[in-house]
């Protein structure tokens, strides 16, 4: 748990993926509820492989170097939400538990996976 964001309520000014009704979403079937009925597999992959690579110190350093590179188009966006993105990538609980925790903060795993910046092979 990241103490910096543990109790933080995210509002529109805090996160681009804020959704006021996110806490009201019914979690019925785990497979469907976390990623929705039409999952974006690129987002899921960015989260799954990103989290696994995050455990490798050299890959983590490489991601951070890449995402904060001046050439990265989402550099500013990443820097605005860096703390939360790092928390998601550094998490080890199940997708459902992580999603629940994120919903308590006013966002969701589905939203946050989309905020993990892409990796561009040309300068990774």
């Amino acid at each position: 748990m990241n103490l910096g964001t543990e109790r933080r309520r995210l509002g529109q000014e805090r996160s681009v993926c804020y959704n006021a009704s996110v806490n009201g979403t019914v979690i019925a079937d785990s497979g469907v509820s976390v990623w929705g009925p039409y999952p974006n597999y690129d987002d899921v992959a960015r989260f799954e492989y990103g989290r696994r690579m995050w455990r490798l110190p050299d890959m983590r350093a490489r991601f951070l170097r890449h995402w904060t590179d001046e050439r990265h188009p989402y550099r500013e966006r990443f820097l605005r939400q860096r703390e939360l993105i790092e928390e998601v990538l550094g998490s080890s609980e199940t997708e459902e538990a992580l999603d629940r925790r994120l919903r308590e903060q006013g966002t969701s795993l589905r939203c946050m996976a989309r905020e993990i910046p892409p990796v561009f092979g040309s300068f990774f």
């Binding site: 597999y41 899921v44 492989y49 696994r52 690579m53 092979g121 990774f124």
Partner: peptide, 29 residues
């Protein structure tokens, strides 16, 4: 293998050399 795949993403030197790239997919697909 995943680490190797990151070296062969779209736009990578690997793609420029071989003409194809790797796009990792989650198991849920």
């Amino acid at each position: 293998v995943a680490r190797l795949c990151y070296a062969a993403l779209i736009g990578s030197e690997f793609e420029q050399r071989h003409g194809w790239h790797v796009n990792l997919m989650p198991e849920s697909v």
